[in-house]
Design a protein around this nucleic acid. Structure first.
Lengths: 195, 195
DNA sequence: AGCAGCATGTAAGTGGTTACATGATTGT
DNA sequence: ACAATCATGTAACCACTTACATGCTGCT
């Protein structure tokens, strides 16, 4: 694991919150980072063994299978900080929805509209999920009054990632609505414009 | 090319607007679809030969190198429509910025702020590019008064993909500003909250 | 005894990028 | 003559997914 990798960063990041098994690691990633990150077992386990050989991670617990947890070492924390400071690779621009919409005039009428409605629905569902997460988050902060500045700041950063999802979902919702309206307007005007 | 592929769709889509060489194909994709799609030569050429063997695409022109253009056949257009109707695979959730922000409390103070400022700047640049594209688009529609309903609709769909980019960029801008403000507020309040 | 969930891994395959090799054409 | 750009491709590699193999633990 010489070259920096995003999987490595995600794994070390998750491990920075406490020691856990590979299985738990994956669940932690999908549950906590789920709205902007994903890892599969096929990535996690090889990454863990690689991290072990570089000394960033240590296995502790009884033995081979059960009870074994992966724990971040000081070397690992240094590595985590280095990876965090690394510039992130640009996300590959590949939006299947827009690709289909762009050439949507090849499809029967109504098909692009249906794509937009689906996108709208997806955005609404995302917003609902985010609202639930935010409710949990607010409960937590209301309970803990004795936060120091560090956890306060950490909390704010985590909230920012949630807020990103909310902004994007709202934007997608507005866009889909707007685009649907534009297509509808076209349908109404078109027949008159003939001749 | 038995299994549907997004590259195939992008290539056929681009070819549906006219015959061109592989080289031109790539330029067309990056220029026209650039804000939501990308293809490299390593994908395009193998895909073209595969499409040729299935009869979706035909080579025409003088010979081996120069002058050869790839042309979509009727089979190809059928294939394009089938691919467009296919549900699109979900985009893998992997946002490097959010990953760094989430664990940003491990970084020296100021680093997350710098990430947000960069994101803000990137969004601003995107908006500028989109504004330029939209200006071109409006010029075109102003010139052509004799549009039929079909091109009108095609135009609306293409505009929708541009509009998507604009909505997302604006949302990112707003989010970055909001998050920066939240962090700043924290900095001001923190010292007082001590003791 | 049997099932659900915990747990660790591997192998094969996919989709994609990057770098390279090669050569023609056009402009300066 | 040289450089830039047009043009077509291949090979090596990388990241990632999926499916599979294996076995443990705890519950009913």
């Amino acid at each position: 694991m010489a070259r920096p990798s995003q999987t490595e960063l995600a794994v070390l990041g998750a491990l920075s919150t406490g020691a856990m098994s590979g299985y738990e690691l994956r669940r932690a990633i999908t549950e906590v980072l789920g709205h902007f990150w994903h890892e599969s077992f096929g990535q996690i386990y090889p990454c863990l063994t690689a991290l072990e050989t570089t000394g960033a991670v240590r296995r502790s617990g009884p033995g081979r299978t059960s009870g074994t947890v992966f724990e971040m070492t000081p070397t690992g924390r240094t590595r985590l900080r280095a990876l965090l400071a690394e510039p992130y690779p640009p996300a590959p621009a590949r939006n299947g929805l827009l690709l289909r919409l762009f050439f949507g005039s090849e499809l029967p009428p109504g098909a692009p509209e249906s794509l937009l409605t689906q996108a709208q629905e997806a955005a609404r569902e995302s917003l609902e999920r985010y609202a639930a997460v935010r409710a949990d988050l607010d409960d937590d902060t209301a309970l803990d009054d004795d936060l120091d500045d560090d956890t306060d700041r950490a909390q704010a950063l985590r909230t920012a990632t949630l807020s990103f999802g909310e902004h994007m979902a709202r934007a997608q919702l507005a866009w889909a609505q707007e685009s649907l309206a534009a297509l509808e307007r076209l349908d109404e005007e078109a027949p008159r414009a003939r001749g």
